[in-house]
């Protein structure tokens, strides 16, 4: 097996880690802090990892933990809790999805229940399988899927509500 240097780990993962951090923190400064803190922890403890294939999961897990530790210290701005999605599945048509810019999507993610945000971010960043997402969030796969179902529903509902040219597509029953 090939040896892995710290620099190569940074090179390979700093961009996806930063994007995950930004999805959670939604400011550049906080996302940079999270990313740098994660690699700092890696530099001090990453050598304990024997399987290089676990590096990705280890990094994302660490970043998520650092984020949660920081969040516990802060008072969150109160946000209006969204109602749970109704039985119908919100659906965004491709045309409307194409019209969105990344800031609108991230803004909508920020309005999703914060318990679901990390799962939704990992889902779209697509760096990880469901098993890996479960490891990162330290919950069972079933919990990941239920958080995703709710989180994606909320996200799409917000995007539909905020898009000026939206049309609502709903799952049709025959």
């Amino acid at each position: 097996m090939e040896s892995v240097s710290f620099e190569s780990v940074v090179e390979q993962y700093y961009e996806p880690l930063y994007r995950f951090a930004f999805s959670l923190a939604r400011t550049e400064a906080d996302a940079c802090d999270l990313t740098q803190q994660t690699f700092y922890v890696w530099a001090t403890k990453g050598h304990q990892l024997r399987d290089k294939n676990s590096a990705k999961t280890w990094l994302f897990t660490t970043l998520h933990r650092v984020f949660l530790q920081g969040r516990r210290r802060e008072t969150r701005f109160p946000h209006d809790p969204l109602n749970e999605t109704d039985d119908q599945l919100p659906f965004i048509c491709p045309v409307m999805a194409n019209e969105l810019d990344w800031e609108q999507v991230l803004d909508a993610l920020g309005r999703v229940d914060e318990n679901y945000q990390a799962a939704v971010a990992l889902f779209y960043l697509q760096e990880c399988s469901y098993r890996e997402i479960a490891e990162i969030l330290e919950v069972p796969i079933g919990t990941v899927k239920s958080r995703l179902a709710r989180g994606l529903g909320q996200l799409k509902k917000i995007l539909i509500q905020t898009s000026p040219s939206s049309r609502i597509g709903k799952a049709q029953h025959e």
Binding site: Y14, V105, L125
Partner: peptide, 20 residues
């Protein structure tokens, strides 16, 4: 399409050097 928006999140230039 939505995934592409996440991938458009700009990564600050110099972040890698700062980490190193």
């Amino acid at each position: 399409s939505i995934r592409s928006k996440f991938l458009q999140i700009p990564v600050p230039p110099g972040l890698k050097d700062q980490i190193l």
